[in-house]
């Protein structure tokens, strides 16, 4: 299963969400499908995409939030799973693309290729719904159901360790950040 195909499968659903991605291949692949102002790409600070999603979810309880995380990133901040589980915002969907690799920094293998089970960690952390998917069809279904379910869900998507040839795009980090905030503020205007 390719991450890019997973992203294609849920791209229409992302239109009505606020999406936060991790750095590198995930950010570049989502951008390659077409950037939208409701996408924020956290191009550094590994581990904090899930925390950013939690801050958004708690601040905007009426808004669906989706985090597109990775195995390398969440392994740097496993405590985030317990913090998310503690507050379990119903409007947050946490996707972890698990390619068993630190692909964007050279392809070094992570512990998920040697037995570390992120679905199990999520469940044992208290995330109310955690599942692993291995096909694009199952992934698309899992994300759509999670968005409809109104229950904090972690979806571990087992994907191949491949990505685009480059990660730098013409969207500057600050442009993305200011556009994202302005988009959210525009949702709050009366009549909009």
């Amino acid at each position: 299963m390719l991450r890019l195909d997973c992203l294609k499968a849920i791209y229409p659903e992302l239109e009505n969400c606020l999406a936060v991605t991790i750095m590198g291949a995930t950010a570049a692949e989502l951008q390659s499908l077409g950037h939208r102002p409701n996408f924020f790409y956290l191009q550094h600070a590994m581990g904090l995409a899930s925390s950013t999603g939690l801050g958004l979810a708690l601040s905007l309880p009426e808004q669906k939030i989706i985090v597109l995380d990775g195995d390398g990133s969440i392994l740097m901040n496993l405590g985030s799973l317990s913090t998310m589980a503690r507050y379990r915002p119903a409007n947050l969907v946490h996707v972890v693309f698990d390619n068993e690799s630190l692909l964007s920094v050279g392809g070094f293998p992570t512990a998920t290729g040697k037995g570390t089970d992120l679905e199990g960690i999520a469940r044992a952390s208290g995330i109310p719904k955690a599942l692993t998917v291995r096909t694009v069809e199952d992934f698309g279904t899992a994300v759509k159901e999670a968005l409809a379910r109104s229950q904090l869900t972690t979806i571990v998507a087992k994907v191949e360790a491949t990505g685009p040839s480059g990660y730098v795009t013409d969207l500057s980090l600050l442009e993305n950040r200011f556009q994202f905030r302005r988009y959210i503020q525009s949702l709050k205007r009366p009549g909009s």
């Binding site: 600070a45 801050g55 905030r181 959210i184």
Partner: peptide, 11 residues
């Protein structure tokens, strides 16, 4: 840091 950033984006 991430949580405060999310809150900032949310206003």
């Amino acid at each position: 840091v991430g949580i405060s950033a999310g809150a900032h984006f949310a206003g």
